[in-house]
Design a protein around this nucleic acid. Structure first.
Lengths: 145, 145
DNA sequence: CACTTTTCCTACTATTTTAATAGGATAAAT
DNA sequence: ATTTATCCTATTAAAATAGTAGGAAAAGTG
């Protein structure tokens, strides 16, 4: 029962971009990779997913770095999660396309489904703008995580 | 981001035992295995974990089957989860003994920690007695899940 | 223009986790 | 005496995870 490292690194990346929102220009992969102590190559894949999900774009040309594609207040943690996972289903029979004939009267499925909604709701309730604000308030001056 | 099958089977097993609470006697591994379409051998391991966690005991002698060791109202879903997992930490740095020097000002850790608490709280809020009641109300007459 | 750097894109791999199976010892009931 | 249920450990096949590697394409730099 763990979130994977791509989601974690992806979120830290998105937080970095949020902190530089509206400051003009972008941040280079290299710079992000250094801040997070992760190889440029691995971050490469993470950036690719964030881009494919439409969450970030190149700031200018190709060597201009990245910036958010939407205001940080419009990007939730769940949005970032979906860039890496497709969907959130804490057990298989909750996955789209895996309907179970017993889903109407399986009390355990009901519990899991309910928990699934609670988790998703929480992830949808927090956006990058809120994280950036917390970051400044808490005085987090170190490199990310 | 999935719960594993042992926790799922374990919960179904516990629900079966709850449905027969106070009816005298116990249920045999074999019977549970048949109801859940899982091999007796695999269920063996699941039963062993539930026993080791002190959640179930032999009803009488060795061939008398199993029963709950506490009233179903005193056993939460989180208790059953712990029989298989040790602890609930949705990311590594939340695990006991994995303290991070930045834990006071890492805003992402704060988010994960908060979500972790929400998940655990929900699992602690539901007990087997509640599941059994739901089961009867919903009219779940089929074999489990 | 030659060179370097950054991005882009795909394949591969090593490790760990997961979901089981298998084998057999022990104990109890028939 | 035999069967059957429990108990206990080891093994395994498959999937997921975390990360490396290789190199093409594009863009900026001297």
């Amino acid at each position: 029962m763990k979130f994977n490292s791509k989601t974690r690194y992806g979120l830290r990346t998105m937080l970095e971009l949020s902190l530089r929102e509206n400051m003009g220009g972008g941040i280079l992969q290299k710079e992000i990779a250094e801040n997070q102590d992760v190889s440029v190559k691995y971050l490469d894949q993470i950036i690719a997913s964030l881009k494919a999900a439409g969450l970030i774009v190149n700031a200018g040309g190709k060597k201009s770095g990245y910036r958010l594609n939407r205001p940080s207040g419009d990007i939730t943690i769940y949005d970032v999660y979906l860039a890496f996972e497709g969907d959130l289903s804490i057990i298989d029979c909750l996955s789209p396309g895996k309907e179970c004939p017993r889903e109407q009267n399986c009390v355990l499925r009901m519990f899991w489904s309910n928990l699934n909604i609670i988790i998703r709701s929480r992830m949808e309730a927090v956006n990058l703008s809120m994280l950036a604000e917390d970051y400044r308030r808490v005085g987090d001056t170190l490199k990310l995580e």
